[in-house]
Computed example of a mutant assay.
Amino acid sequence: MIFLTVAESTPDGPAATAVESAEPDARLPRPMMIVRHGLPHLVEATVIPAVLFLVVLHFSSFTLAALAALVWEYAAVSRRVAMRRRIPALLVLSSIGLTVRTAVAIMNGSAFIYFLQPVIVAGVVGLMFLLSALSPRPLVHRLARDFCPLPHGVTGRPGVRRLFLGLTLLWAAVNLGNSAFTYWLLTSQTTEVFVAVRGITSTALPVTATLITIAWSWRVAGQEGLRATPAV
């Protein structure tokens, strides 16, 4: 979720040119390389479980469909553990969220219980963002690696670290606010109103937060002098 174009800090003057030439990998990859790096994580953590859920639901029950998607998530995590590979933060988040949703789905559900699931998931994710802000590596710092292979040393820059912290707090507020608003909507409005309003807010909030994330990252990149120079 971070689209920050950055470079390693270099001294001013001729020395800067020399260091820049000696370290050609000190800038972020091009956008298409970032897409190729982040897209597989997104597909693995969200698209495949969703498709698997729909396929199983078509031939079986809702409970089995939810369990099938959850099994995929755990299999993806287990494969990385067995191969001693890093587990993407996006996969961790989706696994936790899907676990909560599956546990709720297995209960003797009602319309209220069913619609309560995204409230619980958003609340749990929001708390994870908020608590991670107290750690040396906030959650956005971890998520950034899933979408973009950041050059070595860039994440240690004070400006970038402040950006990660600020964006982590932003996404904590988005998820917790979304959870609280959805719960209020669910308990105070009719089902028809809930479905209509929820359909709008569930799209508008993440899109708005993503645009803020991009704009904020670009602004910090400019302030830090970390934007890559366009090729001539």
Rank of each mutant, 00 (worst) to 15 (best):
L42P: 07
V43I: 15
V43E: 09
V43G: 05
E44S: 10
A45V: 10
A45F: 06
T46N: 11
V47R: 11
V47Y: 13
A50K: 10
A50G: 12
L52N: 07
F53P: 03
F53D: 03
L54V: 07
L54N: 09
V55C: 09
V56S: 00
V56T: 02
V56E: 00
V56L: 01
L57G: 08
H58M: 04
H58D: 05
S60D: 14
S61H: 02
S61F: 01
F62V: 13
F62T: 11
F62M: 12
T63K: 08
T63Q: 04
L64P: 03
L64R: 00
A65F: 00
A65N: 01
A65R: 00
A66E: 07
L67Y: 07
L67D: 08
L67I: 14
A68V: 08
A69Q: 05
A69Y: 05
V71D: 03
V71L: 14
W72S: 11
Y74M: 12
Y74L: 15
Y74R: 06
A76R: 02
A76P: 04
A76I: 02
A76N: 08
V77L: 15
S78N: 03
S78R: 10
S78C: 10
S78G: 11
R79Q: 11
R80L: 01
A82G: 06
A82E: 05
A82K: 12
A82S: 12
A82Q: 10
A82L: 15
R84P: 07
R86F: 08
R86E: 15
R86C: 05
I87E: 12
P88Q: 13
P88C: 03
A89L: 07
L90M: 15
L90S: 14
L91A: 09
L91T: 13
